[in-house]
């Protein structure tokens, strides 16, 4: 859906983006990650032409974005930045209504959409629609920022380190909500971050960049188990690698189907590192699993968590 074909961007003598090519499929949650100066933000801002490309082509649904009017292109996409950038002189409602207003939606439709989005982002519409940005906390402001980006039902959502300035608790809850929204709406998301944990948690696929080049584009599992370069390995880090490895799979993936055991069950979509934590907390090596309908779905064994991983290198371990 989004195609980058050998896209290059230079600022003076410095090449920020170096012949980058990739494709993002419709509905995919793509995370761009890399150290500072790797070009990930530049790539993001080239998708909505805030930064024009010097070489190469960027296509959306086959259309070269250079052939479109920039404002029209941007109104079709959502854009969320780290410092939020809410308009301080407008209420929350008016902020969210920005793009629908630009697109000429009827007022009633805009009003309903604002209510819908506030509820989606867990903000009480009655309390918040008439509030001003300076009256909100950082987390609330960013929720409004996300709502504003989603207002015109864009098919693509661009996010530039949106949660990096928030405290860990708010960040975690916003990550969860974003995942849920992504699953519900099927929007294509391109998400920039420097936090590998965030990337592993949110992404369907992760693109690692360094010095303007695309190093590896793979699923979280492959990034963990088959890092393409020492840089990728370093970005993942060695500490708690095991927990990160567990986090990308769910209880349902490793439960032994035909067994059963007593005790408070875990939902099948629970990530494995939570399951490990649960086992330690309860002092047990086996946990019952239930599926989405509440039906028994097997038992998770501690030994299955520790089971050697098929393929790939384990940092620090015997291959």
């Amino acid at each position: 859906m989004i195609d980058f074909e050998r896209v290059t961007k230079r600022f003076g003598s410095w090449t920020a983006v170096d012949a980058v090519s990739f494709t993002v499929a419709e509905g995919e949650f793509r995370v761009l990650i890399g150290p500072s100066g790797s070009g990930k933000s530049t790539v993001l801002r080239m998708i909505n032409r805030l930064i024009p490309a010097d070489e190469g082509a960027i296509r959306i649904d086959g259309e070269d974005i250079a052939s479109l009017k920039p404002e029209e292109l941007r109104r079709r996409m959502g854009y969320v930045i780290q410092s939020v950038g809410l308009f301080p002189h407008w209420t929350v409602e008016r902020n969210i209504a920005t793009v629908p207003g630009l697109l000429g939606w009827p007022r009633a439709r805009i009003r309903d959409r604002v209510t819908e989005l506030l509820e989606l982002l867990n903000l009480d519409p009655r309390r918040y629609r008439g509030a001003y940005p300076h009256q909100l906390s950082g987390g609330q402001q960013q929720r409004v920022g996300v709502a504003r980006a989603l207002a015109a039902e864009p098919r693509i959502l661009l996010m530039d380190e949106p949660f990096s300035a928030l405290d860990p608790i708010t960040r975690a809850s916003l990550q969860t909500e974003l995942s849920a929204i992504h699953r519900r709406t099927g929007t294509t998301v391109v998400f920039v971050t420097h936090d590998m944990d965030e990337a592993l948690r949110l992404g369907d696929s992760i693109a690692v960049m360094d010095h303007g080049r695309l190093i590896q584009c793979a699923t979280p599992l492959d990034i963990l188990t088959r890092p393409a370069s020492p840089l990728v390995r370093d970005l993942v880090g060695r500490e708690e690698w095991g927990l990160k490895r567990l986090a990308v799979e769910t209880v349902g993936d490793r439960a032994r189907r035909q067994e059963s055991v007593t005790g408070e069950p875990l939902a099948a979509e629970t990530p494995l590192h939570r399951a490990l934590s649960e086992m330690v907390a309860r002092g047990t090596e086996r946990l019952p699993v239930v599926d989405g309908d509440g039906q028994p779905a097997g038992v998770l064994h501690l030994s299955d968590l520790v089971r050697p991983i098929s393929g790939g290198t384990v940092p620090g371990g015997t291959a």
């Binding site: 805030l50 941007r74 854009y79 930045i81 939020v84 920005t98 661009l158």
Partner: peptide
Amino acid sequence: VPAPVLDSARGLGMGPAE
């Protein structure tokens, strides 16, 4: 005018006059 405000205004698709 804070830079993030200008950035998000542009990014959302406001034209220069708006």
